[in-house]
Design a protein around this nucleic acid. Structure first.
Lengths: 369, 369
DNA sequence: TGGTCCATTGAATCGATTC
DNA sequence: GGAATCGATTCAATGGACC
């Protein structure tokens, strides 16, 4: 494994390695605001008395079942709040987190996320195409798990590769319910006895969608409950840096071997459909300056409205002067208008959207770069 | 309406009526342990900012009603705990509750349910077949809502009509994700102006499945946030008794008229839950996510053209990026192209159409249904 | 009567950059 | 830091108009 490092202030970020030990302690040892994305699959089959440290180490006296249950939730909440707080510190201001869980724990995790200042962006349902049936016929087949996607704070500029996800879904915007099979077959890691190496190994397809959608190549992805390292394996494939934290030595060994066998995809294949928002801005006036449109020339809209181009790159239509957007919005009585797609000019007897002229300029800019 | 009563101790249960006023006060006025099932659709605490416009500039008529406004999570939690406590008292020992919500509130509701001693049996996802899209391309389409089904306490003998649900689902065990359309068309109640009478009317299909699955004929069903009375209408159809509680007079009026028009054991009750079985659409991107094809891998066409797979499920060929169909059409100079039959990949020295991989996925989906 | 086209709408935490 | 400006962005279903 290639254990690179990045420096952040005076501290060092141990990239592409698995840290051993308690995830809260390990997260606290890493520099603040150094991670782009956290993917967390926290435990919920807790042996509460032994496994998890309580803040005051006092023993709970179980007065009755209800109280005992309530106390157990308290312990779980304390644990959840603690690791979410450590994670919050690690995230860059525009970072984000994904947490996966089932009805046993996801409601407590979600409420704790909100209380800790994270801002929920979506809850996403992983709809399993081949779940374990409910053999006793006493409940519904438990056929899904829930993921919460949240930014570090309200108003943060999280990463969302909308176009890439839309492409993954063949041109239709990606929904909050994902139909993907559970991890089995050759992907499912086995131990020496041929038993499954980890009880809840997540499928790589799930992480593929998460990482393509909410990170960019070169981003740092942290998984505080690394297990057998699905997050690391997919991150490596996709050209993202990763950090894993895992307490159990046996899982660390399996994950280390597994990730070593993974080959990163070719850099060019990782390029993803770009958002139009990311394209460089072109002022409309440049079309006039460059003679692509002439002052006095008439533009028409799909609705038959007309306006004339002025030398300073503004339009006049219906007595109103302003930008291509402002005049379009005025003529349509609309709150806003994208003038680039609204206005057309005449060329060889046909009407052509002025956006093609902008595309020409952008293509030239790309050639020169 | 037929306002029957049942007596419980010295108190009387007002059946098949809508009680006016605050749901907590009204619940506290009813006798303890008198209700078999509670279905609750509480305010979601949506936190809208400004106006939202569709790409065609029309304005989205969002939920901005006063009853959905809460000052903080703290206030919302207090409200939730209070009505859940009152509901808990009303339930018979073997009674159960359903609560529906979105990511804005459901995590808080779920945690409060657990804290109040309810025992979660399943979380059930309502996958909307026709959700409102995400207009700004900033998040995933919000395509589902979450329902929590819980018994009054751990170990309670709740009602679950396994066979009836299996029959509803064409002989296959009912899963925890239900695909049902949102409420529109003739079922959607309108006011005198032709506007929607209630912003969040739930579809009858949803309640039909809930009541068939978790009540028996003659059971008493309470809905503390009655709205326009979908719960009452479906309960009447299915021969269950119901009690509604609703603060807003206008909603009570609409609900009263609506339920009066319902005929018990209406034929439509049998059709209402039968969701259309949609042809499973398999996006090409899923082949990449699932590792059946790798980013960077080369595809070939029968005419000898080549293209490379990218991480987002698009292709690059001859410098053109796009879907399997678009790139195929470009390379052939054709107006359109079926990429599934056009493109082939190499396997064991042979070329195989990618459609084989799609068929593989469809077969898996059909096996498990 | 049937088919096509177009307008409408649904529980929504739905900008970014420059001035 | 607030205001102005640029300019990107939608899927499924229903129902009415029109031919």
């Amino acid at each position: 494994m290639n254990a690179m490092t990045k420096t952040k202030g005076t501290q060092v970020l141990p990239l592409n390695t698995i840290l051993a030990g308690d995830c809260i302690e390990q997260m606290n040892s890493l520099p603040a605001e150094s991670v782009d994305l956290i993917f967390a699959d926290p435990p919920y089959n807790l042996q509460l008395r032994g496994d998890l440290h309580r803040p005051d180490n006092s023993r709970v006296d179980a007065v009755d079942d209800h109280w005992d249950q309530f106390a157990s939730f308290q312990v779980y909440d304390d644990f959840t709040r603690a690791w979410l707080k450590a994670a919050h510190r690690l995230l860059k201001p525009n970072g984000a987190i994904w947490v996966i869980g089932s009805y046993h724990n996801i409601f407590r995790v979600g409420a704790s996320l909100q209380d800790a200042g994270y801002w929920i962006l979506n809850d996403v349902v992983w709809r399993k195409s081949n779940p374990m049936p409910n053999f006793r016929g006493k409940r519904f087949t438990n056929a899904h798990e829930t993921m919460i996607w949240a930014s570090k704070s309200e108003g943060a500029k999280y990463t969302f590769n909308y176009e890439a996800l839309k492409a993954l879904n063949e041109g239709i915007q990606m929904r909050s319910d994902w139909v993907l099979p559970i991890c089995n077959g050759g992907e499912r890691l086995k131990d020496a006895n041929g038993d499954k190496a980890h009880p809840t190994q997540k499928p790589m397809s799930l992480l593929h969608r998460v990482l393509v959608g909410s990170t960019n190549p070169g981003d740092v992805v942290l998984d505080p409950f690394f297990g057998t390292g699905t997050t690391g394996a997919v991150a490596k494939m996709l050209g993202r840096d990763w950090i894993g934290i895992e307490r159990e030595e046996s899982y660390r060994e399996v994950a280390t071997r597994r990730i070593a066998d993974v080959r990163a995809f070719d850099r060019s294949a990782l390029e993803v459909t770009r958002a139009k928002r990311a394209e460089p801005r072109v002022p409309f006036g440049q079309l006039v300056e460059r003679g692509m449109l002439s002052p006095g020339e008439t533009l028409v809209s799909p609705t038959g409205k007309i306006a004339r181009v002025r030398a300073d790159g503004t339009l006049v239509g219906d007595g109103v002067k302003g930008s291509i957007h402002q005049v379009g919005a005025h003529l349509e009585g609309a709150p806003s208008c994208n003038g680039w797609t609204y206005w057309q000019f005449r060329k060889d007897g046909k009407t052509v959207p002025i956006d093609v002229l902008r595309q020409q300029i952008r293509a030239e800019m790309a050639d020169r770069a």
